[in-house]
Amino acid sequence: MKTIFICSVLSLFIHISCTAKHKQNTNLAFQNDGVHEIYTAKTDSNTKNIQVALLLDTSNSMDGLIDQAKAQLWEIVNELSYAKCGHHKIKLQIALYEYGNDGLPSQEGFIRQVLPFSEDLDEISKQLFALTTNGGNEYCGKVINTSINQLDWKKNNDHLKLIFIAGNEPFTQGPVNYKDAAIDAMEKGVTINTIFCGNYRQGIDTKWKHGADITYGEYSAIDHNVATVHIATPYDDIILELNNQLNDTYIYYGNRGAQKRMVQQEQDKNAASYSAANAVSRTVSKSSGFYKNKSWDLIDAAEDESFELEEVAKDDLPKELKEKSKAELKQHIAEKSKKRKEIQQKIQELNKKRVTYIKNNRKTEESNLEQALLNAIKKQGEKKSFSWEQ
């Protein structure tokens, strides 16, 4: 009887242990499964994503297109930052592909994923400015298919999931039929928008419009060789001075902190290389909710509930902060955070006046990459309860 009792207890213990271990393993597997992480699932209910995959033709004739992308990135981000969707937090993720360039691997279909979905606006800018053009074969169906399969698209169709493909060769080229690629996109709730760099009618004849129509996307034709016109305003100099003050609020940390701080400064210079007004556009983006750098900036990191300042080693801090106590460091972060919010608020207030000035002084509506993207995003966003207000 005693033996039976002991065996029963042991069996019960083994059963409980195995069940607990199975549950733990199940939870770990669930947590490690990208889109289905427990934390992500929880936050996703409060967040609406705008996922934009840019597929840019980098063949010889596309220098103008790449220039427009570089020159217009920050105005696109600024306009998207005004998105509203009820009480949801809006998150912007941008992915970047290049195609049609002989310098890319032929076995991959002359396609390269430059950047997977990212919220790091500095990194997006850095990669855009690194793009160069070269002659090649433009396989539209192939690059669409690749982006559909490679990217971490949200599974819930309440999110705004968009592909923008821009180029000037027939949409029918390459080993993957664009119709099949479009059907794959539809199955994931992704809308394809096509931007033909050339004559509107020619884009229709070469199936660019049909490529968009299959997924109920937008077709646009632009003059990609027209230089972007940046309108200077009376508020620009003040905003640029505020940008200098804003940069002073960043406290880098970690192995790559100093490097990422340099990238931030480099992208300020890249924006300014087009015009002072473009540098202003970037400054406005840096004052928006989309510009977050918690991976290397202590101010943004401290806003994350899961962040533990105590886990940051002194060696990972800037030289002038290494000797501060944790209490002193927390106080320093709080002061910088307060200052940053004040500066960002001033930039936003000045930007409202700036936007009004630009609207009143813009002579014609331009047909360019920026307008093609924004028109499509707003139109398709409205179908999913997004609104656009400054």
Rank of each mutant, 00 (worst) to 15 (best):
W208T: 11
G135E: 08
V77Y: 00
R282E: 06
V229I: 12
L56S: 07
A130M: 11
N193T: 09
K314E: 10
V77M: 03
N145E: 03
G64I: 02
F196C: 00
N255C: 05
V284E: 10
A372Q: 06
L373N: 06
S275V: 05
K91Q: 01
I148A: 01
L131R: 12
S147D: 02
D304L: 03
H88L: 13
Q380E: 06
K21P: 04
Q24Y: 06
Y178C: 04
I76K: 00
L329G: 13
T146I: 03
N351I: 00
G211T: 00
K286F: 08
N32R: 12
F386I: 02
I4Y: 11
E37D: 14
K2W: 14
D236Y: 05
I124D: 00
N255D: 07
K91D: 00
T43G: 07
G135P: 03
M62A: 07
E79N: 04
A302K: 05
N49V: 03
P234F: 06
K91R: 02
N25R: 00
K91P: 00
G34I: 07
Y291W: 04
I50K: 15
Q264H: 04
Q31A: 11
S125Y: 01
Y291C: 04
N278L: 08
N27F: 05
Q371R: 09
L160Q: 04
P234A: 04
K286S: 10
C18S: 14
D44Q: 02
D300L: 03
E266P: 07
K330M: 11
L115V: 05
N270K: 01
G381E: 02
I76L: 06
Q150D: 15
Y253Q: 12
D67Y: 09
Q348A: 14
D300F: 00
N270Q: 06
S45E: 09
H15V: 07
E119Q: 06
Q107E: 13
E138P: 10
S306A: 14
N46C: 05
Q265F: 12
I111D: 00
C7V: 08
A301E: 02
K359V: 02
P175Q: 09
K155M: 12
E79A: 06
L309V: 13
N149R: 01
D316P: 01
T3A: 13
I343E: 03
A258K: 12
A301Y: 10
L160S: 04
T172M: 04
E342M: 05
G86Y: 10
K2I: 15
Q72T: 15
Y253R: 07
N32A: 11
H210R: 12
V263A: 15
L12V: 15
D102Q: 11
T233I: 15
L55V: 05
L10M: 12
T364S: 13
A83V: 04
K338F: 09
F30P: 01
A276S: 14
G203E: 10
K42H: 07
N145F: 13
K23P: 07
S45Q: 10
P175I: 06
Q331F: 07
Q173K: 14
D44S: 10
K363I: 10
N25A: 02
S125K: 03
C197E: 06
F196T: 00
Q344W: 11
Q24L: 13
L28Q: 01
F5D: 05
E123C: 12
E303D: 00
K384V: 01
L350E: 12
R112M: 08
S337G: 15
G135L: 11
L12W: 02
S81F: 09
D63I: 08
A221N: 13
K207S: 15
